[in-house]
Design a binder for these strands. Structure first.
Lengths: 337, 337
DNA sequence: ATGAAAGCGCTAACAG
DNA sequence: CTGTTAGCGCTTTCAT
């Protein structure tokens, strides 16, 4: 493996000139730059990451604590991973994965400087990891919005406003009996912040508007979605449905079709989910779309700023907006508002 | 951040003693070891990963090139990621993610020594990445089985034998008209090695046994699975089905139920898929299970051996076996074989 | 059983 | 615009 001094010798310049040519931190004459680049190509030189990390105190990687629990939708996790990788790439960093459930290992990569910062997914209310993360030797960003974050910056989609918006807009479209199908029971029991906040937004908005509200939990891996849907239709007779459960979306869609429910005439439906998961066959669900890429970018941006020395980047709650598609009534231009 | 010399001073020993106490590479007296450990705890010392990487020429991470293409089932990818992380953990390594589609970045992490080895998922026949990977400065392991690997060790489940086994066993159970629903069309078009090999195993086995064979491609995100199933049932009238498409499994299951097909009496079905994806509601599909953990472990084991200096670890094709469950006829104890 | 010291390959003052 | 040099925090020979 060629080293930087090999390049220096080969190009007839000093070591530091090579270093500066590479980092661009000082002006280099055209001619020497060319000789250096030629040498780099000729010897196929690549800077040694370890050496660079030691000298610069930068690992060039950000850690991502991913949830490996079964109740977290793998597709959604992958979307976040992809988004974080893209964002990290732009900050010329790599992504080091750590198991969210393995708190020891998570703290270790931070303490050993294997990563410059850590992004933590799937945060729960009163997350037991927070105290240690709050005093970690390197920046941490929560991809979630627990009430108490002990000063750790939080970045998330505003799930509370998201469900509230869904309710409000359904109400404006004439809905009065609402049902929300929320996250899997394991997620609710853990009190994942997105689940708690989504539930709260739904309940509060319904109460404020004085509409009937039913919040259900559904484990589509375990119970029959068809059965659930039939029960809902028969017992509650809702005129609108809010779905915040990516894993169950497809199954619910099939169950509704199976029951001959036509949307939006029989039932209006709004999904709280990433765009990709709301296109089911021929139907495109009206949705409050979870902007995965934006969230990922915001998280990496926060991490990057902290790495570069910012003292505090504040919290960030990304505002929701409703994307009207096939499963809600169009709003007559001047009907309300 | 405390460094090793801080520990040495605090414990009243030399720097190298601390290093050896940590690595266990030479005997340390009980008393000094205790003083060192006490100092480590007191100063909450953690070795600096960069410094260690520089001195030892080991990054302590293995790279994983993950496919981010939409046609690769996210759930299955996550299962592999989890499996690799577990295996890496045992080898006290971390997992650095790189986008499989970003060949540049992949080669860079190898060349810069950010990882000690690379595991590449979703390899295709005549994969354009192979030549560069074959001459990479650090070990590479393919999680896939292309015909030409240019000397790069291949590790994979034997998908060819897997479908062949499914066919053979269905035939032993009286099936004569077989249909296989394979990977999504994008996967087939790319010639992912698992898709190609699975198809070949199916075709060859059917031919050898002289049974009717139909191989179909299904994009359940695009076409209606119900329609597909209806067409199959009406036009081909098969007595057995082999499914090698995790993303479509649930949809096919629902479609079959919807058509009132009862398994195994009307139709025998074998899935080629990880165990977790073959339990659908109340039905447990007979399957040739893809042993994700085993594959991941084998890949990391191969990588680890190569890192430690092994010249060649050979290829590894993990043998399939059929797990009989609800969707095939039981074989009378002495009927065949 | 323990120390001293020479690097590993960079970055970034400091010096011109 | 370029060079010299002192580390960064470890691992690992040599010595003893």
């Amino acid at each position: 493996m060629a080293t930087m001094s090999d390049i220096a010798r080969e190009a007839g310049v000093s070591l530091s000139t090579v270093s500066y040519a590479l980092s661009g931190k000082r002006a280099i004459s055209e001619s020497t730059r060319e000789r250096i680049n030629a040498a780099i190509t000729r010897l196929s030189y690549h800077p040694h990451a370890g050496a660079r990390a030691l000298a610069s105190q930068r690992a060039g990687a950000i850690g991502l604590a991913v949830p490996l629990a079964e109740d977290v939708d793998a597709h959604v996790v992958m979307m976040f991973v992809r988004s974080l990788m893209r964002a990290a790439h732009q900050a010329s960093s790599e992504v080091l994965l750590v198991t969210g459930e393995d708190h020891e290992a998570t703290l270790r990569v931070l303490a050993e400087g294997k990563v410059d910062a850590l992004v933590v997914m799937d945060v729960v209310e009163d997350d037991p990891r927070i105290p240690a993360l709050a005093t970690a030797p390197r920046p941490v960003v929560l991809l979630g919005y627990p009430t108490q974050a002990q000063g750790i910056p939080r970045v998330d989609f505003d799930f509370e406003q998201a469900t509230a918006l869904a309710v409000t807009e359904l109400h404006r479209r004439g809905a009065h009996r609402l049902v929300m199908i929320g996250s899997p029971s394991a997620t609710q029991t853990r009190h994942a912040t997105y689940a708690d906040r989504a539930t709260r937004g739904f309940r509060t908005a319904c109460q404020n508007l004085g509409v009937s509200a039913h919040h259900l939990v559904h484990d589509h891996e375990v119970e029959s979605t068809g059965q659930l849907v039939r029960t809902i239709l028969a017992d509650i007779r809702p005129d609108a449905l809010v779905i915040h459960n990516e894993s169950a979306l497809a199954a619910i869609h099939r169950a509704l079709s199976g029951e001959g429910v036509s949307m939006p005439s029989d039932l209006q439906v709004v999904a709280i989910a990433p765009r990709e998961t709301t296109l089911l066959g021929t139907v495109e669900y009206t949705a409050v779309e979870i902007p995965v890429d934006e969230i990922g970018q915001a998280a990496v941006a926060a991490a990057t700023e902290l790495i570069e020395g910012a003292d505090d980047v504040g919290d960030q709650l990304i505002a929701p907006s409703l994307i009207e598609r096939d499963t809600t009534h169009p709003l007559t231009p001047g009907s309300t508002r």
